[in-house]
Amino acid sequence: MPIALLALAIASFGIGTSEFIIMGILPDVARDLSVSIPRAGLLVTAYALTVTLGGPFVAVAAGRLPRKTALILLMGVFTAGNVACALAGDYWMLLAGRILAALSHGSFFGIGVVVAASVVPRERRSMAIALMFSGLTFANVTGVPLGAMLGHWAGWRSTFWAIVPIGLISAAALVAFVPKTEKPAEGDGSLADFRILGRPQILLTVAISVAGSAALFAVLTYIAPLLTSTANLSQQVISVALLLFGVGNFVGMLAGGRLADWRQMPAILGLLGLLVVIYASFAFTSHATIPAVASMLLIGAVSFATSPGLQTRAIEFAPEAPGVSATLMQSGFNLGNALGAWIGGMALEAGLEYGQLPWLATALTVVALVIALASVALERRNPKPQFAA
């Protein structure tokens, strides 16, 4: 493994921890800043929307810089955002810190994906991207729970202070290990880079990501009440299930990278088809402890296994602006997160029971599979261009 991938993985670990840690310390934040839980929850929404809407524009703004320089500056923005969160004296300063940190998120992963693909042979690109994103999935297993424990013990600000040295270490690793190149992060570093949005294959690939993540979060957002209502699981068992979900993310990401390097679209189609079966089965397995916990492991693994192939596909269809394309994938994933939570909530308000949410996830995954089949059909008529990282 090129050591540059380790530097990118460390950075993705820090970013992943920062993104998701707020959920574990939300009650502490709300109580300390004297705001309601729903208002504190806007800290999650604001972060996701900033990644979705702001990421591509930040990627374009960084377009004239060499990729290594862009990554280091973005990690500096990320670190500054977490310092602002740690120093926040009121809700609005904390919100501003979260938005500042989020501005670096999508574009860092977008440019990082291109760098990861450039340091390995063509046939190992998806695995390299998976190794970079393994830091993000590993954050769900270790960084987030440990950060939440620290926040409960020493105050929620200590959690953000703990992320700051991760940002500094990541920046130092990027300086030391990412190859120096004068090649810019993007095409011409202007809004003209958004012309790739007129390319059907880019839109289809982003749409697969949106539908797939919406399916996941339609269930995951409400997983605690779902497992409580169907299998009467205790909070301790639900915590174990979520831990195994995180382990599945890590394993699935790496396995998905290897599969995508072998056969990209057959792997994506097969994984989406398998997800349809897993979600449909979860409507039944969620009613018993061991099958429910095992299903969480499978959902975590297979849902994240599609990511490396989709990321690789996005940059291959946008050789003149790969960083913007990869950043759009991050926007799509975060948009899907928000849509899945909203669709699941609307369905529950309309009378759907928690135990029926897996059927909703099944339907959304079928949508993702249909889009993927349309992408394959289009590629047969118009083969992908050659991407030279």
Rank of each mutant, 00 (worst) to 15 (best):
P56C: 09
R67E: 14
V58F: 03
G14T: 09
L65C: 13
L42I: 15
P56I: 07
R67T: 09
L6I: 07
K68N: 02
E19A: 08
A7V: 00
G16Y: 04
I25G: 14
I10R: 00
L8Y: 09
I72G: 02
T17I: 07
L8T: 00
F57K: 07
S34V: 14
P56R: 05
I22S: 12
G24W: 04
L53A: 09
D32G: 03
L73H: 06
V60D: 03
M23S: 15
A7D: 01
S18D: 07
L26A: 08
V35I: 08
M1L: 12
L33V: 04
L53G: 07
R64N: 13
L65G: 15
M23D: 14
T45H: 10
R39Q: 14
L53Y: 06
L49E: 08
G14N: 01
S12L: 09
S36F: 11
L49R: 12
P56M: 09
A46R: 08
L49T: 04
F57R: 07
A4K: 02
A11L: 03
L5G: 03
T69E: 14
L53S: 06
L33N: 08
V35A: 03
V51C: 10
R64Q: 08
K68V: 00
P27D: 06
F13G: 09
P27M: 09
I72P: 01
T52P: 05
I21D: 13
I21N: 13
D32L: 06
P38W: 12
K68D: 03
P2R: 08
L5H: 09
I15G: 04
A7Y: 02
S36K: 11
I15T: 07
P66F: 02
I21M: 13
P2I: 03
S12P: 03
E19Q: 03
F20E: 09
R39L: 15
L8M: 12
G55S: 10
L5A: 00
I72K: 05
S34D: 15
L49M: 14
L71Q: 05
V29S: 05
V51T: 08
G14P: 01
G55T: 13
D28E: 15
G24R: 09
R31G: 14
V35Q: 00
T52I: 07
G14I: 12
Y47H: 12
R64S: 13
M1I: 12
A30S: 13
E19C: 02
S36T: 15
R67L: 13
L74P: 06
I72V: 10
A4M: 07
G41M: 11
A59T: 15
P27E: 05
R39W: 10
A48Y: 06
L8I: 02
F20T: 05
P27W: 05
G16A: 02
I37Y: 01
A59F: 02
D32Y: 06
A59D: 07
A9H: 11
T69L: 15
S36N: 14
L42K: 14
I37C: 05
K68L: 01
A61P: 01
L73R: 14
D32A: 11
L74M: 12
A70Q: 06
D28K: 13
V44K: 03
L65Q: 14
P66M: 02
T45S: 11
V58E: 09
V35K: 00
G54A: 10
G24F: 05
G54Y: 06
L73P: 06
T17D: 00
G14M: 00
A4V: 02
L49K: 11
